[in-house]
Amino acid sequence: MKKNIAENESVLGWILSTPSVVWILLIIVYPVILTLWISLHQQKMVEVNPPFIGLKNYIDLLPSAKFLFQLKLTVIWTFLNIVLITPVGVLLGLLLNRQFKGVGILRTWILLSWIIPIVATTLIWQWMLEPAVGIINFLLYETGITRSYVNFLGDPSISMLSIVVVNVWRWSPFMGIMTLAALQNVPKEFYDAARVDGANAWQTFWHITLPQIIPTVSVTSFILTIWLFNMFPPIWLLTEGGPIESTTTLPIAIYKEAFRLFRMGKAATYSIILLIVVSAFVAGYMMLFVKSREEVVK
C-alpha cells in the first residue's frame, strides 16, 4: 500500500534526506576522489587520457623551495589574521554587550562589512588604498604619519600587511557577533553574586566573563583558522598573489597552476596537500578538545 511507505518513518526520512545527501556527496566527496586521481596524472588542460605518473607531482612539489615559501606565507597570513581578528572581535562583542542608545541597530548593522560581497570589499579598499589619489594615503600624508605616498598593494614589503588589514575589517564583526551571543548567555546571577562578594570590574571580567566566553571564542577561532588557511578571494582580488609572489599563499597557488598555467595535475596536488594539512589540524584540535573534556570529567 502506498500509504504504508509514506507512514514508515525510516523510509520517509530517507526519501526526504537523500537528495541533500546525494548533492553533498556529488559536490564534495566525489570531487575529492577526483582530485586525488588528477594529482597522480600529468594532466594539462582537460585531456581525456592524461599519462599516469604516480607520485611524481608530489615528489617534485613537496621539497621545492617555492612550495615551502608558499606554505610559510599561508601560515603567516593565517596567523596575522587570527591574532588581529580575535581580540578586535572580542572587544567589539564586549562593546556591543553594553546598553546604550542605538545598540540594537548597531548589533545587526555591524555585520555589514562581513556580509557585503567580497568583491565589494576588495574594490572599496583598492580605491581607498590607491597609491596616487586614495583617501588613506591622503590622510596619512596630511597628518604627517607618512613622508610620502605608499603603494600599499604594490610594494612587496607591505602587501601582506595591507591585505591582512582589509581582511580584519571584513571578519572581525563575525567574531564580535559570536562573542556577543556568548556574553548574552552568561547567567545574570553570576554578576549579582560577584557584586555581593565585592568584586571590582576587572575581577568580574577575569573570573566570570572571560571563562564564559572562551569556549565560543575558541571554537570560532578554530573554524576561522580553517577558513583563513584556505581563503582565496580577498588575496586574489587585491593582489593576485603579487607583487613578486609576496602574497602567493597555497590557495592562490592552486588557482594559478590550474587556471593561469593550465597544469591541473599540479593544482590537484596542491589541493590534496592543503586538504591533508587542514585535516591534520582538525584532528589535532579534536584530540586536544576531547582530551581536555576527559580531564574535566576526571
Binding site: 545527501v21 564534495i28 580553517i226
Partner: peptide
C-alpha cells in the same frame, strides 16, 4: 523522523561547513 544514518547525515552537513571552496575548484 527517526531513521538509520540520521547522525551520519548531521555530521555530513557539518563537514560541508568546514569545507573550503578553493579545494573543489579543479575537480
Amino acid at each position: 523522523l527517526n531513521f538509520k544514518g540520521k547522525r551520519l547525515f548531521s555530521n555530513l552537513i557539518l563537514l560541508v561547513y568546514l569545507f573550503p571552496g578553493i579545494l573543489l575548484a579543479v575537480p
